[in-house]
Design a binder for these strands. Structure first.
Lengths: 220, 220
DNA sequence: CTTCAAAATATTGTATGCAATAGCCCAACG
DNA sequence: CGTTGGGCTATTGCATACAATATTTTGAAG
């Protein structure tokens, strides 16, 4: 067995901070007080700083030198850029993945999306978002391109924040579910061009929904 | 002034290891003995491990749990994947960058490529490679997409290794220089489609040159 | 000679102390 | 009233000690 029976402190801290950020509990720009958090979590500086360092590299928090840690705030432009990049990467993933899809894979996608819709209907947005994420991660995996998978994984948390924001609109969540079904239909038909185009449109739609919520904000 | 007058140990270690790896001094798969290196560099474990952790995230070394640090080895497939991704990302960068190019930018590109060719002719492959890298980095910068710039930066070191390998063939280096000139010509004409296509062809050419050197190797 | 378990060893995770450095505050001065 | 500079504080970099865990080696039993 290779899985650690016991999470390290570093990992627990990491997960905890991620949870607080993606849930919206810690909004953009919030300072993360090292002393307060290490005392609250009963850990020393070492694993705390390591976890925060990782988060910083993943673009979830920013380190202002000699001034501490802050939850990262995204400018409107940064959000736009992130989703433009995501569009490029995920379309690439789709193009690589479709030829690798067996009927078994298609069935797996169906199950994922079914779960998502079920969660959405019962109002469980957390599960809905999680299934959505798995949908995209599975496509990436099927691309078989390790460098691409790695790159998308690195962006996953930033994207997750966007997902939480966008899904605040049930209207959008509903539409997105339909879009994913359409993508799956293109998978079934092994129609690469169509699947890629639908994915681009889907991500553009998410982008729009996230930017919608940025009317007021002016970050950095 | 914001630049540190004095590099931190972590940074010095990082730079030193990078230098040793990209120069080929430490070939693929070489174990990095923590005790030996910390003694040689006269530093403690803390900055050493931090530097190595960063390198690992950048894919230059791999950490085999409880067995130490090793210079990362790439399988043929991983190299292929890396360059397929690079193609996608750099073509995207070109498409974004071309509309932002002023005559001043074009002139800057000319200078960069002139320097590169001068270096190549005098046999200074290190400078040649460095200018090549600047060429690509400048395009990324001009794209104006922060997420894309960040992503390409993360891959830069892996790409740098490939560059060193590919440029061992002077024949290839010569051809690559011509290809970059062609790309620049497309920039001058503000021909986005052509610039993008030439960039794809250029990177495919590098990919081929690197893979050429992988005949024998079987990594991981 | 093979197998298995326990001891020896190496790596990793965590806590903590100390020194260096940068940012902040405020008072003294122009 | 603005500016300057010095002391205070928080953050950071580094070293080191110790505990926990995984791997490797050893050695004895079958």
């Amino acid at each position: 067995m290779n899985a650690p029976r016991h999470l390290t402190l570093r990992e627990r801290i990491y997960e905890e901070i991620v949870r607080m950020i993606v849930s919206g509990e810690l909004p953009s720009g919030t300072p993360l007080d090292e002393k307060a958090l290490t005392e609250k979590l009963q850990v020393s500086r070492t694993p705390f700083r390591e976890a925060l360092g990782t988060l910083a590299k993943e673009g979830l928090i920013e380190i202002k030198p000699y001034r501490g840690f802050y939850v990262r705030s995204f400018s409107r432009k940064e959000v736009e850029d992130l989703y433009e990049l995501r569009k490029t990467l995920e379309c690439f993933a789709v193009q690589l993945a479709v030829p690798n899809m067996s009927d078994r894979h298609i069935a797996a996608f169906e199950r994922i999306l079914d779960d998502a819709v079920t969660a959405l209907q019962s109002g469980d947005l957390a599960t809905y978002g999680a299934r959505d994420r798995v949908f995209h991660e599975t496509i990436a995996e099927l691309s078989g391109n390790a460098a691409l998978i790695e790159t998308l994984n690195r962006l996953a948390l930033q994207i997750q924040i966007g997902r939480t924001i966008a899904n605040e609109s049930k209207d959008f969540a509903q539409r997105a579910a339909q879009e994913r079904d359409d993508i799956l239909a293109a998978f079934r038909a092994r129609d690469i061009a169509r699947a890629s185009a639908l994915m681009a449109a889907h991500i553009a739609d998410v982008q729009g929904a996230v930017l919608e919520r940025f009317r007021n904000e002016e970050a950095k």
